[in-house]
Simulated assay, not measured.
Amino acid sequence: MSRATAAYERLTDAMLETDPECQNDGRFVLDDQPAHTLSYICRACPLFDLCRDYAEIERPKGGVWAGKRYSSNSKAGTDE
């Protein structure tokens, strides 16, 4: 099992018991929403550490993860 898969499984397992603060909030997937305007929501989320761990390993192809924006045209999260 890859590190990314293991991190994702830990995150999804935790989501079975705790809803992430970003759930059903479309701003986390919009490209025009700066990550810094959402980071306060991420910091308050009980799943922040698991989300950050996954995102740092996997570098998702889009969205805001643990207060950082990821996109298909960047290799690292940004605070835009």
Results as ranks from 00 to 15, higher is better:
Ala66Thr: 08
Arg10Val: 01
Gln23Leu: 05
Cys45Gly: 06
Val64Trp: 00
Ala14Gln: 06
Ala55Asp: 11
Ala14His: 07
Cys45Pro: 01
Asp49His: 03
Phe28Asp: 05
Gln33Arg: 07
Leu38His: 10
Ala55Pro: 08
Asp49Val: 05
Arg43Pro: 03
Ser2Phe: 04
Leu47His: 13
Gly63Cys: 02
Gly67Thr: 06
Pro20Asn: 05
Met1Arg: 01
Arg43Lys: 13
Arg10Ser: 14
Ser2Glu: 08
Ala35Tyr: 08
Asp32Gly: 03
Glu9Ile: 05
Glu17Asp: 15
Asp31Pro: 14
Arg27Cys: 00
Thr5Asn: 11
Asp53Lys: 06
Leu11Asp: 03
Gly26Cys: 06
Trp65Gln: 15
Pro60Glu: 14
Asp31Trp: 12
Pro34Asn: 11
Cys42Ala: 09
Thr12Leu: 00
Arg27Gly: 05
Pro60Asn: 07
Cys51Val: 05
Met15Asn: 03
Glu17Phe: 04
Thr12His: 02
Ser39Leu: 03
Ala7Gly: 00
Ser39Gln: 04
Thr12Ile: 02
Leu50Cys: 00
Leu38Gln: 15
Met1Asp: 05
Ala6Arg: 05
Phe28Met: 07
Lys68Phe: 11
Arg43Asp: 15
Asn24Tyr: 07
Leu30Ser: 12
Cys42Asn: 07
Leu47Glu: 12
Ala66Ile: 03
Lys61Asp: 13
Phe28Cys: 09
Leu11Phe: 11
Ala7Thr: 02
Pro34Trp: 02
Asp25Ile: 10
Asp19Phe: 03
Glu17Pro: 00
Asp19His: 03
Ala55Val: 13
Asp32Cys: 01
Ala4Tyr: 02
Tyr8Arg: 05
Asp25Trp: 01
Asp53Asn: 11
Ala44Trp: 02
Asp13Met: 09
Gly26Ile: 09
Trp65His: 04
Glu58Ala: 08
Thr18Ile: 13
Asp13Cys: 04
Leu38Ala: 10
Ala6Ile: 03
Glu58Ile: 00
Asp53Cys: 05
Met15Arg: 10
Trp65Phe: 12
Cys51Leu: 00
Ile57Thr: 15
Asp49Leu: 02
Cys45Leu: 08
Phe28Ile: 10
Pro46Lys: 06
Thr18Leu: 07
Phe28Val: 02
His36Pro: 02
Ser2Gln: 04
Arg52Val: 11
Gln23Cys: 10
Cys51Gln: 06
Arg59Glu: 09
Arg43Ser: 12
Ala14Tyr: 00
Arg3Ala: 15
Arg59Ser: 14
Gln33Glu: 15
Leu16Ser: 13
Trp65Tyr: 12
Thr12Val: 13
Gly62Tyr: 12
Asn24Lys: 03
Thr18Arg: 13
Thr37Leu: 06
Leu11Cys: 03
Ala6Thr: 07
Leu30His: 08
Ala35Gly: 04
Ala4Gln: 11
Ser39Lys: 11
Thr18Met: 07
Cys22Phe: 04
Leu38Ser: 10
Ala7Phe: 08
Glu17Ser: 09
Cys22Gly: 09
Glu56Gly: 00
Leu16Thr: 02
Phe48Gly: 03
Gly67Tyr: 13
Tyr40Thr: 14
